[in-house]
Amino acid sequence: MENDKPLVKIVLGATCFADAKVAIDIVEKLARTLELKLRAYLLKEDAALYASALPFARAISPSGTSLEVSDIKMQQAYFADIGFYERALKSLAEQSKVSWTLEERKGNLDGIMEAATSHEAIALFGFNQLQKPRNGIVVLAGEDQDISNFKSLAGTLSSEMNTSIEVLRVETNENNASNMIDLLHKLQTKSPALLIATSEIIRMTSINALLDASRCPLIVYNQFEFAADSG
């Protein structure tokens, strides 16, 4: 029966293990109904590396504690996180039918998105929320976009996460930037549990902008992901 599950490719991106863990939890939920091929990345953002090299660099832990940062300390933290990441993926693969790879990657989150597009995969960006979300899954789609195909993904996650789905339609006219500002503002106050957006939406803004506004994990969905694939 396991062979009957549709195969889905996912590219997972996170800038730290805390975010990656949230994404892995979502993958685990998906793996209950899907066969997954996972390409995971720990992203060493340029900005983080530059910032840590500055003389007054400091990091603030989620509990609000201030830590001194240096190049070496940051590298050590990345090294530790990739270890955690790997163990978490191994554990996931033991429990679910998931094949995976893990790489460290420099650059930014948009680079991960590009990798997803090139591999015809769903992009999943982890985000460790500081507070319990007040809303359920928010789906962002173009105004006339047919979302019936990926609504099943949202449905699966909604039932696994025991939460609701809300669909926000956005005018995808490239000239209308104010639409996007409104959308980001809306997301800032929404506090969703998970954001699912089509690649069409992403083209109008950036991954960072969406993550900063929604402050929740993000799935970017292309139309081809659920096409049958023998692997």
Partner: peptide
């Protein structure tokens, strides 16, 4: 400034034209 999520926690980074500022630029 930009707020970054790193393995050590949140970091505040300086930007120039929405791009991270390199140490040499600083």
């Amino acid at each position: 400034l930009a707020l970054l999520r790193t393995p050590m926690g949140f970091m505040v980074a300086a930007t120039i034209n929405d791009q991270p500022m390199k140490p040499e630029d600083f």
